[in-house]
């Protein structure tokens, strides 16, 4: 699961551009990962210039 590190994002849209399934929404000063769409490809994590996005194991979805 992709998580956003709080107060770090610059809202530049680079991650949005590489997301293959349009699972990132960006407002003037807010970023949301649409978890129901996300396919955990990690491309957004790799491209972010300032390491805002991270992958974590999601216990909840395993249950």
């Amino acid at each position: 699961m992709i998580i956003v590190e709080e107060n770090k994002c610059d809202f530049c849209g680079t991650c949005v551009a590489v997301c293959p399934v349009d699972a990132i929404e960006l407002f003037e000063a807010q970023i949301d990962i649409l978890h129901d769409r996300c396919i955990d490809c990690d491309l957004c994590v790799w491209i972010c210039p300032i390491e805002v996005l991270h992958t974590v194991e999601n216990e909840a979805t395993l249950a």
Partner: peptide
Amino acid sequence: DGVESRVGRWAGIKTTIKIKDMESAI
């Protein structure tokens, strides 16, 4: 709408860019 290019996607045009072609910049 700049790099994000979501409007085109909503119209059914593939606008996603390959990661090797995107420069990550600061």
